[in-house]
Amino acid sequence: MKTGLTLGKFAPLHKGHQLMIETAIDEMDMVIVVVYDDPITTIPLKTRADWIRQLYPDITVIEGHKAPTDSGYTPEVMKIQEDYIKALLKNISVTHFYSSEPYGEHVSLALGAVDRRVDVKREQIPISATKIRNNPLQNRPFIHSIVYKDLITNVVLLGAPSTGKSTLSEVLAQHYDTQFMPEYGREYWEKHQVNRRLTMLQLQEIAMGHLAREDEYIQKSNRYLFTDTNALTTRLFSLYYHGHATDILNSLANKCHERYDVIFVCDTDIPYDDTWDRSGDANRMEFQKKIFADLKARGLSYTLISGSMQERVKQVESVLNDFRKY
């Protein structure tokens, strides 16, 4: 049986790496990918390994914890690398070693495997992980959507109606030269409301439609996506008007902690915009309390932002300057 091995940091995984893996899959009976731990990236080892597992579920992915950081081609360094790889493989016999680097020679020799080089001159896929780290958006065509989604910080703005979420989302997107996700529920409500009400199933449809639209915006974003409301708010509306929510809507709300990296709540310190489609300032204050209570019950951390638009932008900027996604 032909068994191919390739390895790397995949920080992040890009189409050059995928060419390597897919070439091995086409040529081998079994493929093993070793993902190295890497101090130069904040993206966790498991996240990088899971990208490959999702894209290629039939291959074997080994997480290389405490991988050697020594680099170069001295006999000592090469032996450290070779011994580490052999220890990871244990008793697995490798027939072909896939790479696009000079280390392919000594590693394949150490494993008694065929030295299989792929796209050494980067002519088929002219990209590197360094270029992507420096500017993911500019190099977007070389990154799979599964990977790119994990490179974007999803920032959600919550708050009762008429707290400035929509305006602030758009201003922040302009400030950071990126995308903002408009409130899908507003668009849906305007098309389907009857006497200013929606059914529980319609509120469920809002949450699902919002997520689908949000996924599209993430793929066009630059470092951040600013999202106007999410399924937590939609669920609260369902509880407010109907006393309960569908199982699907509850499930979507429960998964919000996995999807949003930073939560801001817009304060009620701006004048209430009393338009026909709203229920009054008293209801605004009541709904705001429900948002705070829900976030507390879920154990979700958030930052309350207030003041003028300029002050709110500065508050967001202060938080994001200190935030690291991983």
Rank of each mutant, 00 (worst) to 15 (best):
S99C: 13
V118K: 04
K79N: 04
A297P: 01
D281P: 08
M309V: 13
R197C: 02
T69F: 05
L168G: 01
P75I: 05
G307Q: 00
S251F: 08
F10R: 02
L89F: 00
K79P: 01
G16R: 03
A67H: 04
T234S: 13
V262M: 10
Y148C: 08
L151P: 09
I206C: 09
T95K: 01
G112A: 12
T167Q: 04
Q310G: 00
F292T: 05
Y217C: 04
F180Q: 10
E214Q: 10
L45I: 10
T268I: 09
K90N: 11
L252R: 07
V33S: 08
D119M: 12
D274E: 13
M309T: 14
I143A: 07
G307Y: 02
N91G: 11
V107P: 01
E187D: 15
Q18M: 15
L158C: 06
E63H: 02
P12G: 01
P12Y: 01
I32E: 00
S279V: 01
M20H: 07
T199E: 14
V94F: 02
K149Y: 09
R324V: 13
M78V: 09
F292R: 04
N154V: 10
G185Q: 07
Y98F: 15
V265E: 01
K90R: 15
H96T: 11
T268K: 01
L172W: 02
K314Q: 14
K121V: 14
H175Q: 15
L88A: 08
W189H: 14
D37Y: 06
K296Q: 07
K149P: 04
P126Y: 06
A297E: 09
R298K: 11
K191P: 07
I125D: 04
R213M: 11
V194C: 05
N195A: 15
V61E: 04
Q174G: 06
G159V: 00
H242Q: 11
S145K: 06
D150E: 15
C256M: 12
L295A: 03
T268P: 02
S99Q: 10
V319E: 06
C266V: 01
P12Q: 00
S308K: 04
T167D: 03
Q18W: 10
S108F: 02
F142N: 01
Q138I: 03
Q18P: 03
E214C: 03
V147K: 02
I132G: 07
E214F: 03
L211F: 13
G72S: 13
